[in-house]
Design a protein around this nucleic acid. Structure first.
Lengths: 240, 240
DNA sequence: CTTCTGGTTACTGTAGACAACATGTATTAT
DNA sequence: ATAATACATGTTGTCTACAGTAACCAGAAG
């Protein structure tokens, strides 16, 4: 579909994906077709095609006569996410270890290198996109057209959730970030040796780490702060 | 997205889905935009939107400057299908038993009634579409936006495969068809009582039955036919 | 002051016409 | 005779202009 990476339409598609993933376009907001078509230098019909495709991929939701809405995140979202993620991640990682080609492993290593660079730089968006790409590549390795759709859908919200909670200034979380990156190296090693069982286990462990991080933000430790002290931290707060 | 079922565009979308599922549009064939737009009485831009959406849903594959192709079925298709199906079916059925609402169960019963009618009538397409709708409704009950994409993708090919192999004239398979329909009734009963474990087990059993039917056609028992006899059957044969 | 109704506005949905690309064929040169 | 190239044809990709619809706001009646 997107063979020619130079076309404006493809650029538009990729940029909109990026904007949704990084929450530059916040969940739930409505998008103006005319405005977007002017931004990307194309007319409305092809832009509408792009929006349809994004709807199919789960980035946006289309409403009749009311336009495209960035896929919202509700209270049910997180719960459903916790149910589906470990199963899909474990399954796709297992299949990746069984089917990965040499060329794919090379690309995965390049991606991991870029991911570590992003962590060092402290750029939340780059880190989140790098992580998304890493797991997306594992999905490609799995080479199963029936599991990929759910994996892609999971990665969209996993990235957005990570983007919400990730804060490079929280030094206490640096060890966890290192651990996550180390696990990525282990993914590569296990996929390269074709150890499917270990890869599946690692996928679950990797997921548990991510889950713990998310839960630590959903249930913050603000209780430990003594009463009467000036509250200087409100980092997890909203955007706009 | 498709709130108004009367619009030509929605009709077009649903009809194309139906045509792909019943193999009226055979896997791999290319579709002519102009021709389709004339058939459904709409112009090419909205038709192209429909094709994009169908691509997102996995019914068709888009090729740059070469149009839309009905999603092909290769040798890898069946293998990947066998890997993913039991996992997704079991998971969604379990969740359906946990989350189903009364209104949804009513609709499922209506669907099951229609399904039995279709079996009696011997209409392969109606039966296949009825089965697809039944499992699609269970997917809705599961109410998990992360698992639904894979389920829908599975159901597309499950329906097409069933459409290929199903032959109402094969009387030997009548008991299996009856069993499948009975299992649907059991699905309803277990979902209604909320027995998630039993529902998941039934999903696997239901899948195994379907799998056995498929395998019996992939590996036909032509060996038992004595040599020298006129070969009168070539039903599973290829397309254009 | 509240509520219903009419108009206004801004957006989405669609159509028709034009441009770009790919394919198949015929012609020419080797 | 064969291969390569140029052309003709048909399809996809895109743009501009128009039609339809829903939300918003103002004004009048209760």
């Amino acid at each position: 579909m997107d063979i020619d990476p130079r076309s404006k339409k493809t650029l538009c598609l990729e940029d909109l994906r990026r904007r949704v993933l990084t929450q530059a376009l916040e969940p739930g907001v409505y998008m103006d077709e005319t405005e977007l078509s002017e931004i990307y230098g194309i007319s409305r019909p092809p832009l509408r095609e792009v929006l349809r495709q994004l709807a199919g991929e789960g980035y946006v939701v289309l409403h009749e006569n009311r336009g495209a809405q960035v896929a919202p995140m509700t209270h049910k979202t997180l719960r459903n996410f916790f149910v589906a993620a470990p199963m899909i991640y474990a399954a796709t990682t297992r299949l990746a270890a069984e089917h990965a080609t040499a060329a794919q492993i090379v690309r995965l290593k390049e991606c991991q290198w870029a991911f570590r660079q992003a962590i060092k730089s402290g750029d939340a968006a780059e880190r989140a996109l790098g992580n998304e790409r890493f797991h997306s590549l594992i999905g490609e390795m799995a080479d199963n057209e029936y599991l990929t759709p759910s994996l892609r859908r999971l990665l969209i919200d996993h990235t957005r959730i990570g983007m919400t909670f990730y804060n490079p200034r929280k030094l206490a979380l640096a060890p966890q970030r290192e651990l996550a990156a180390d696990q990525h190296d282990q993914f590569i090693a296990l996929i390269e040796t074709g150890d499917a069982d270990a890869a599946a286990d690692l996928a679950v462990a990797h997921w548990e780490l991510s889950r713990a991080q998310i839960e630590s933000f959903v249930t913050p430790d603000s209780i430990t702060i003594p009463l009467g002290r000036a509250p200087g931290q409100a980092e997890t707060g909203g955007a706009s």
